[in-house]
């Protein structure tokens, strides 16, 4: 008896998917497109925050030494720099090195430097902060501290630029989070509504099944399987569409990264669970099963 029931439930599920192919396809397309919007949003956020992170990682604090600072004082500055908790690395850049770098940066215009008498650039130390400490407050404190050291002429870290950037990034994340929330809620709404309509469309059939004495499991399992499959297929559809868009966009914008594979699989599993849960709760609420 048990085995037959089980087999019939599987039969029902397969039969339902076969019979309702057209309706399922429409639902999958609707859900797939809304998921695409969500996924595209996540991808854009991912790439922008990647750029932000990369840029902020490249931020350094420069300590310029007074002209004619002796080696002992210079070494003292190095060890003081290393002594700061947030500092990961201290690199000495000699004035000659700095000039060479400058020349290289100027490229074709480098002959401008030939007009100079000698090297106007000072020796310097470049401080790299540990990740997570790259904040204007930390840098300001370090800069103020280092400015007091003997032999230090000036400390720079692109303060204005950095503070503005920091504000911009904060603003971006707030707007992004708000938009993300709206997009997420809309997608959940679209999906749950699609599932609800699917179930309401089948109300008559469900009532008939109840009438002939079908158990809740017999009625519900096919719908739950259908919901899970809809979620899975539509998220895969969204993934494929997004990847296509990503490839096209990659031709114009270099350095784009795609969502990690494990995150993609997580997304698919999440959508499948959402579809199954949606079917289940829609039946609970609207059909009093």
């Amino acid at each position: 008896m048990k085995f037959n029931q089980f087999r019939y439930i599987i039969d029902e599920s397969v039969g339902m998917l076969r019979r309702r192919m057209a309706a399922n396809l429409i639902a999958v397309v609707i859900m797939g497109l809304s998921l695409l919007i969500l996924a595209a949003f996540l991808l854009v956020t991912l790439n922008i925050s990647g750029v932000i992170e990369k840029t902020s990682k490249e931020t350094r604090v420069f300590i310029y030494l007074e002209d004619g600072t002796g080696e002992e004082v210079s070494r003292e500055i190095y060890s003081r720099g290393m002594g700061i908790e947030e500092v990961e690395e201290v690199v000495f850049i000699s004035r000659d090195e700095a000039l060479a770098n400058f020349r290289q940066a100027l490229g074709e215009e480098s002959d401008l430097l030939d007009a100079l008498e000698g090297n106007p650039l000072p020796d310097a130390y470049r401080l790299k902060l540990k990740p997570g400490y790259i904040r204007s407050k930390v840098m300001e404190r370090i800069a103020a501290q280092a400015a007091e050291w003997p032999g230090v002429e000036e400390v720079r870290y692109g303060r204005k630029w950095f503070e503005r950037g920091e504000k911009l990034v904060r603003g971006f994340y707030i707007v992004d989070l708000a938009l993300g929330l709206i997009v997420f809620l809309s997608v959940i709404f679209v999906i749950s509504n699609t599932v609800r309509l699917t179930i309401l469309n089948r109300r008559r059939a469900i009532d008939i099944m109840k009438l002939v004495g079908a158990t809740n499991a017999y009625i519900q399992v096919p719908f739950i399987i259908e919901g899970a499959l809809q979620g899975m297929v539509s998220s895969l559809l969204a993934g494929v569409l997004l990847f296509t868009l990503f490839q096209v966009a990659g031709r114009y914008i270099p350095g784009l990264v795609f969502i990690r594979t494990d995150a993609v699989s997580g997304f698919v599993v999440f959508c499948a669970a959402l579809g199954a849960l949606g079917s289940f709760s829609a039946m609970r609420r609207h059909l009093k099963l």
Binding site: N4, Y8, V212, A214
Partner: peptide
């Protein structure tokens, strides 16, 4: 057949 299937009657 549906009426019989729900009771678990064999095919």
């Amino acid at each position: 057949a549906l009426a019989m299937k729900v009771t678990g009657t064999g095919m």
